Simulated assay, not measured.
Amino acid sequence: MPTLTRTSTTEMEVTSIRLERDLKEKLKELSGNQGYQALIRDVLWNYVHQRSGDYAPQLSHSDIRATIAATAQQEERCALTGKIIRPQEPMLLGLTTDGVMMPLSADSFVD
């Protein structure tokens, strides 16, 4: 996940959100020393940046272990270049070093 600029908690607004107990426990497990509220903020900021067009690529070529040819079934955004991949366009699925599959544009490995 990209590093985000941290805002002082005194400058944040308090918002209440209801989470299932299991979800909250999983978030606590995944967040480690970061804390689950900071993790939730990171996830929400990543979503906002991706949806608003302010998307910053999350990966580099060295993060990809393998690729699989695929066809987009819905609009995707390349995790390397930020390029939009339209439905029915050829694309790649990239397996990251963390074991996550990410959408990649078909030409993302062309120099």
Rank of each mutant, 00 (worst) to 15 (best):
E89C: 07
M1L: 04
E25H: 14
V110T: 13
Q58N: 12
C78N: 01
H61M: 04
L19V: 11
A106S: 10
S52H: 02
A72P: 02
T10G: 08
M91S: 03
R18E: 12
Q34D: 02
K24V: 08
M12W: 09
V110A: 09
A70F: 00
R86F: 05
K26P: 01
Y47M: 01
K24H: 07
L30N: 13
L39R: 10
E89W: 04
G94K: 01
Q73A: 14
G99L: 03
P87S: 10
L19H: 06
P2W: 03
T97A: 14
P103L: 04
M12Q: 14
E76Q: 12
L92M: 05
C78F: 09
P90R: 13
G35D: 03
K26R: 14
A79M: 15
L39W: 07
R41C: 06
F109G: 08
T5Q: 14
R21C: 06
V100W: 00
A66D: 13
Q50G: 10
I64N: 08
L27E: 02
E75H: 07
Q88N: 13
D54E: 10
P90H: 09
S60W: 01
T15N: 12
I85Q: 06
F109A: 03
Q74W: 11
L92K: 03
V100A: 12
V48S: 06
Q37S: 08
Y55V: 00
L104C: 03
